[in-house]
C-alpha cells in the first residue's frame, strides 16, 4: 500500500502489478461496507465520548467530563457489577454444555431428534426466550413461582426483587447458551480419536480421569470456541434485560450495554456523549478478551 520505490526490473512489472491489485478488487466492496459501518464508527464513538451532544444540535467539546461523571455514577457501578456477574455465571454454560453433550453422545434409537430438541433454545430469538422466562417467573401462576411456593411456602417474584433479578435473567440467558456449547461439544466428541480412547481404557482409565486426561485435551478447539462465544455473549447481553425488566427494579438489573442504550436514546433526552463514554468503557473491557482471542488465532494461523 505504501509508495515504495519499485526495485523490480520493468519487464516483470505489468504481471506483478495486476496480481497485487487483484485481491484488493475482490476485497473492495466488502471492506468498504465493513469500514463504513464497523471500523470507522469505533473511532467516531471515542470522539463523540469527549462531547456533550443530543444527537441533533452541534456537538460541544467537554474533554473528559463524561468520564469523570461516570466515575461518580452509582448506576454505572451497578451495571459494571452486573456485567461481572454475567460473565462469571455465563461461563457455567461451558461445563454444563459438556455435561449434556456427554449425556447425549450415545447411539440409541431417536437420539438425533433428542439432540436437535436439546439444541432448540438456541435457535429461537432472545426476545422470545425473555418472554418465555417472564412467564416462567410470573408471580401467582408462573411455573417457577408455583414451584418455589410449593417447596418453601412463599413464592418469590424473581423479576421484581432486587436481590434475585439479575440471577433470574442470567438463568434465562444460560438456557440457549448451554445449548450452543452442547452442540459444539457434540461435534467435538464425534471427532475424538477412538483408538486413543481404547488405549486409555486398556490402561484402566475411565470416568472423570478419562474425561480430564484423554478426552478434554482433544476437545480443545471446541472449548476455545465455546469460551469465545460465551464471553462475547455475556458482555453483549442486552435483549433479555430489555425484554424482561427494562433494567429494573430501580435499575438493579442494568448491564453496561443496556445502560448505554438508556442514556443515549432514553425518553429523558438523548445523551449521546455520555452513552458513547459508557460504550467506550464496555469496548475497552471487551478488547481485553478480543485481543486474547485474536492473539491465539493469529498464533494458530502462523503455525499452519
Amino acid at each position: 500500500m505504501t509508495a515504495l520505490p519499485d526495485i523490480h526490473p520493468p519487464k516483470a512489472r505489468p504481471r506483478r502489478r495486476r496480481s497485487s491489485l487483484t485481491p484488493w478488487l475482490f476485497l473492495a466492496p466488502g471492506l468498504l461496507m465493513f469500514a463504513v459501518y464497523v471500523l470507522i464508527p469505533i473511532f467516531q464513538s471515542v470522539w463523540v465520548s469527549f462531547h456533550d451532544w443530543d444527537g441533533l444540535g452541534p456537538m460541544k467539546w467537554i474533554g473528559l467530563a463524561n468520564y469523570s461523571e461516570l466515575w461518580w455514577d452509582d448506576a454505572f457501578y451497578t451495571s459494571l457489577k452486573n456485567n461481572v456477574l454475567w460473565l462469571a455465571l455465563y461461563l457455567l454454560a461451558v461445563p454444563l454444555g459438556l455435561l449434556i453433550a456427554v449425556f447425549l453422545n450415545q447411539t440409541v434409537k431417536g437420539i438425533r431428534i433428542y439432540k436437535s430438541l436439546f439444541f432448540f433454545p438456541f435457535v429461537i430469538s432472545q426476545v422470545v426466550v425473555g418472554l418465555i422466562f417472564s412467564w416462567f417467573y410470573a408471580p401467582g401462576f408462573g411455573l417457577f413461582y408455583v414451584l418455589i411456593e410449593w417447596l418453601s411456602g412463599t413464592g418469590v417474584a424473581i423479576l421484581a426483587d432486587e436481590r434475585y433479578v439479575t440471577y433470574g435473567i442470567i438463568a434465562a440467558g444460560l438456557w440457549p447458551q448451554i445449548a450452543y456449547c452442547m452442540i459444539l461439544y457434540l461435534t467435538g466428541l464425534n471427532a475424538v480419536a477412538p483408538d486413543q480412547i481404547e488405549a486409555a481404557r486398556l490402561d484402566g482409565a475411565k470416568g472423570w480421569r478419562m474425561l480430564w486426561h484423554v478426552v478434554l485435551p482433544q476437545l480443545r478447539p471446541a472449548t476455545f470456541i465455546a469460551v469465545v462465544v460465551t464471553v462475547i455473549g455475556a458482555l453483549r447481553s442486552f435483549d433479555l434485560v430489555s425484554i424482561m425488566t427494562s433494567g429494573g427494579p430501580f435499575g438493579s438489573s442494568r448491564v453496561l450495554s443496556y445502560y448505554m442504550y438508556e442514556q443515549a436514546l432514553s425518553e429523558y433526552g438523548y445523551r449521546m456523549g455520555y452513552g458513547a463514554a459508557i460504550a467506550v468503557v464496555l469496548f475497552a473491557i471487551m478488547m481485553i478478551f478480543i485481543t486474547g482471542f485474536i492473539w491465539k488465532m493469529w498464533r494458530d494461523e502462523r503455525g499452519l
Partner: peptide, 14 residues
Amino acid sequence: VAGNFVPFQILMVP
C-alpha cells in the same frame, strides 16, 4: 474477525 466481536454499543451512535 475482531470487528465481528465488538460490542454493538460502540457502533450505535455513529
